[in-house]
Design a protein around this nucleic acid. Structure first.
Lengths: 396, 396
DNA sequence: CGCCTTTGTCCTGTGAGTGGAAGAAGTCGA
DNA sequence: TCGACTTCTTCCACTCACAGGACAAAGGCG
């Protein structure tokens, strides 16, 4: 199948495409209710979209009391590739034009091996997904990387945990390899877009999305759009000072949030606690696996281990303290907590909530939900698909 | 003179009005270079603006090598009122349509006396300005208040330092009294808009504007627009924790930035230092005036008083620490420091810079100017005028 | 089976906007 | 001082987007 290269010719078409993406197949009449165009104009634009092949007819709609309308939908053959590169693993997923996940692979990996090795793996995963018959090719791909990105060019800049990636032309290289348009963004921003599109943040214009994985980052959504900052490093809250004169951090300072709480810090603390004999539960797991991760801590906490619970609570306190500051500053309508440590669940959430509700002013917290992300590991890839679809569904 | 009630009829006219406001009188031809409209269309829109009276002819422009163009300018009779209500004083200014200050009054006042008393004073100041012949009436007014505002309605909400103002219909009441459209915003946001319009932040899209007066607040500009948050309390950074288990704050927590540094805290610290005999300079001033303010500390520091310098430096450190976090989070292109304590000048600035450059990541600070505001006490009133002109120069 | 509602198509009118032509008002060099 | 060249303004014809009405097609409902 030849890939779609068409793009909407004007804002009306772009609008219609996004409605069909977010609302699924729809009747022409219902679309008319949403776009405030005359029926004639709407018919013209829909016909043009049908001509381009981006949209196809889809039978008859249910009657609304009179003549039945004809349904249309986005071309069901369209395929987007969503790639979420984490510090220690990659997620690759194929979606249709409505951003529903058709296939999803997750593999461990180390970003520090550099872009060439990583993309080799990503491409082979994409090929594997293709081989299952889910896709014959891709109409666009969104890529998330765990570090700052110069967004217009799609190039990582000075990424602390990704030596070897600085300045690598991710967008251009992958666009070549995949033969389709590519957009690149920070993984945290994509998670925020994912939760906005299909998760808890639907219909919220201003919110924060805190991702606690190997590191800690924060997606910032202002008026429905991701705020990336002037150098693409907005949301980099891992190195905000949480503890004055606290632990030394890889960045050279002391007391950074990330040094006190993150997937990596939690694992380190757990190992230490186990070795000091503070927790039989953790010590047992350490002996079995030879190492500990956040997952082990979560399991120990679920089993009622006091030390594990303390570690989580303390981390939540630190995180909550930083978030409290951000809430005062930004006054969001929602705070989403996600990332690898979501398994820590409500113990973590409770600690964070306590801090935020205690420290921020009532006006800012009065009606402020603080919730766990709804999409788990799929948030990133959905956000990635959303990123590229937003791009492709905009006038060229 | 009857007041102008006309509004631009479309976005082209709005665009032209803003160009004339920001660029001053201009030739039709030069306007044409900036708006990307055909000459015919431009002529039509300019004619319509002339008909409304918002814009008037202004002689001939200099030749650019051929026939001379006709100049046009905003009606020189237009008058905006800018009001900046602080915690302890009010600024009232009259501007023309180009937002140049024609007259400016400043009077001490206490917001805690409540809206009725304050507005009586504001109206009498406005009347005084009128009496000098600067204005026969106002075409619009912008009001800044030192607390959160529900922006669309122009109503203060839960303002901590303004008991009695909660829910007072500022916009409606003043609109009645003045007989012109009124917009209300947080004073810090207005300062940010002022610096954006006529100060250091010209041509910067994303920046923070930290105002250190009786309290501490921060204006947030994202993509050229002020971010107010979902409840209008964005930028309320005075109650971010700067010192764990630090001083008790009026808000009920401990260690808030505002408790450790602000005009009020600085004055308190200075009195204490004077009474403890740490500084002869400050003690002398205390004896003379019976009280101390930030101005005294600034003067003492300028005279080389070590205690005063220490107070400023320590405050700058705390402020810088909080700002460092915000810079990591928001990744702005500029940080402006302003407000009543600007007199503390470069000692304060140096302390803040040191903290920010040390604590934030190089990518965020690499090209980040941290500067003092350029407009001093006029920033607020210019911002207020800008607020209402933005409103009036938008399609109705 | 007739009447009402909804949907899709066709057609015309209107207003926004472009671009060219022509004239008006300059500059500049000989 | 005059003519050649520029720049600015106005006028006009043409295109295009879009609205809205008329009408036909297709369905629901009593």
């Amino acid at each position: 199948m030849r890939r779609m290269t068409a793009r909407p010719a004007n804002t009306h078409q772009a609008r219609l495409l996004k409605l069909l993406r977010d609302g699924g197949p729809n009747s022409r009449a219902q679309l008319g209710d949403q776009v405030d165009l005359s029926r004639s104009k709407l018919a013209v634009e829909v016909d043009r979209l049908l001509e381009t092949g981006l949209v196809v007819a889809d039978g008859l709609a249910a009657s609304r009391g009179g003549r039945r309308s004809h349904n249309i939908r986005l071309n069901p053959g369209l395929r987007f590739l969503g790639v979420d590169i984490g510090a220690t693993s990659v997620d690759v997923a194929v979606t249709n034009a409505e951003l529903e996940i058709l296939g999803h692979l997750n593999q461990p990996m180390d970003v520090r091996e550099g872009p060439v090795a990583v993309f080799e793996q990503v491409l082979s995963m994409a090929a594997k997904l293709k081989a299952t018959g889910l896709a014959e090719g891709f109409d666009g791909a969104g890529i998330g990387v765990p570090g700052p990105v110069r967004f217009p060019e799609g190039v990582p800049v000075a990424p602390p945990i990704m030596p070897g990636w600085d300045g690598f032309p991710v967008r251009e290289a992958l666009s070549q390899e995949l033969g389709c348009p590519v957009m690149v963004d920070n993984d945290v921003n994509l998670m925020a877009m994912g939760e906005q599109h299909a998760g808890v943040a639907r219909s919220v214009g201003d919110f924060l999305c805190v991702k606690i994985g190997t590191g800690i980052g924060c997606g910032i959504v202002v008026g429905g759009d991701v705020h990336r900052g002037v150098t693409g490093s907005a949301g980099d809250i891992g190195h905000i000072q949480a503890v004055p004169d606290g632990r030394p951090c890889a960045c050279g300072n002391r007391g950074c949030l990330e040094a006190h709480f993150s997937g990596a810090a939690l694992a380190r603390d757990a190992v230490e606690a186990a070795q000091q004999g503070l927790s039989a539960e953790l010590a047992g797991r350490l002996e079995t696996n030879g190492t500990l991760t956040a997952v082990d801590v979560a399991a120990a906490a679920a089993a009622g281990d006091a030390t594990a619970l303390d570690l989580i609570r303390e981390g939540g306190n630190h995180t909550g303290q930083v978030i409290a500051g951000l809430v005062s500053f930004f006054n969001p309508g929602l705070v989403v907590i996600g990332g690898g440590v979501t398994g820590l669940g409500h113990t973590l959430l409770a600690a964070i909530r306590t801090q935020v509700y205690r420290q921020s002013l009532p006006l800012a917290t009065g009606n402020l939900p603080i919730v766990l992300g709804e999409l788990g590991p799929t948030a990133g890839v959905i956000g990635a698909a959303r990123l590229i679809s937003d791009h492709l569904f905009s006038p060229a």
